[in-house]
Simulated scan of single mutants.
Amino acid sequence: MAAQSLVLLLSFLIVALVKQSHGAGIAVYWGQDSGEGTLADACATGNYAYVNIAFLTTFGNGQTPVLNLAGHCDPSSNTCTSLSNDIRACQSQGIKVLLSIGGATGSYSLSSTDDATQVANYLWNNYLGGQSNSRPLGDAILDGIDFDIESGSGQYWDELARALAGFTQQKVYLAAAPQCPFPDAHLSGAISTGLFDYVWVQFYNNLPCQYSSNADNLISAWNQWTTVQASQLFLGLPAAAEAAPSGGFIPADVLASEVLPTIKGSSKYGGVMLWSKKFDNGYSSAIKSSV
């Protein structure tokens, strides 16, 4: 019996270690404020497992794609190619670096399946494992694409996901950043493909489902989101109160005591996403051990 008990205990420990090594992590958005420091500096904090370079603000429907990294660099002057070294530095630490497309104020849309395919080809050749003479971030190969689609219709984003997943020369990680009201108006169809590795839901600037004096609405919405076909689900939060004018900020101690113990029970729990590096002045450090 003692031997059986020991085997059982070892089995539990192995399962626990495997789950831990699979690991929850923190994702962050970087690129929308020149005062947030360099990409390499962000990765060097050791706080992040994923970094979304934000944003490719213009693309699709015949438009010339535009990368907007605020004051960090100017793609039109080819000064963003220097980011290749930073990207490789992040990746050498095991951090996945994705390009975030869309954003709250971008000019983007997809008009057809063919349009989605063209955008996928552009992303592959200019940011992923393909080849182009005009790679805005230089020759570094990003790990994937984040869909932060907040305007327009929900049409053809599923087709874009399928086209990106079709590049077999490289595993293209797919992420999505839907709003917390379920289902998301723009990304529901895309997420339903089951192709997304990470879904970091924006539980902020959304009164019906964000934290507001208690976690009841947030937990209710989180439970709805756990039903989606995605590998991992993340709790998207503002890194400071001023990062989300319409609310949703959760103090680090409250997050650790009231929210994370409940949502971590989900087998799809992947961690926490933060908006954004500009506002993260100690928040990720404060929550890291709880995530």
Rank of each mutant, 00 (worst) to 15 (best):
T38V: 02
D33Y: 15
I53L: 07
T262F: 12
S111I: 00
A120Q: 01
P261V: 00
N217F: 14
N47S: 11
S289K: 09
G37L: 06
K171S: 12
A70H: 15
A161E: 03
G129I: 06
A240N: 04
Y50P: 00
G271R: 12
A256H: 06
K278T: 13
G270P: 04
A177D: 12
G248Y: 03
G62E: 08
C73A: 04
A42F: 12
S112N: 06
N125T: 14
P181F: 14
L174Q: 06
Q93I: 00
G130H: 06
S21L: 05
D115W: 02
D74L: 09
P178R: 04
L10K: 09
P251F: 07
G23I: 09
K264W: 04
L160E: 09
K268R: 06
V15G: 01
S192Q: 11
A243Y: 02
P245C: 02
F167K: 07
S213W: 10
S231H: 12
S92P: 05
Q210E: 10
D115Q: 04
S107P: 00
I141N: 05
G103S: 12
A104Y: 15
D197P: 03
G102S: 06
E36R: 07
G102Q: 10
Q131E: 14
D158V: 01
D115M: 00
L56G: 03
Y269K: 09
F12V: 04
A2V: 12
D41T: 10
G248K: 01
Y269I: 09
N217H: 13
S112F: 11
A230V: 12
N281Y: 04
L8F: 12
S107D: 14
S109I: 08
S84V: 04
L123P: 09
S84C: 11
G60N: 13
T64L: 07
S188N: 15
G247C: 07
N121Y: 13
L274T: 02
S77G: 12
A89Q: 10
G282V: 09
G37T: 08
K288W: 03
L260Q: 11
W124T: 05
A24F: 10
A140C: 04
A40E: 15
Q210D: 01
Q118H: 08
Y127H: 10
D33Q: 13
V7S: 06
P65V: 05
V51I: 13
V18D: 14
F147G: 10
E159S: 11
P238I: 03
F234V: 03
K96Q: 13
T57E: 10
A185N: 14
L17K: 00
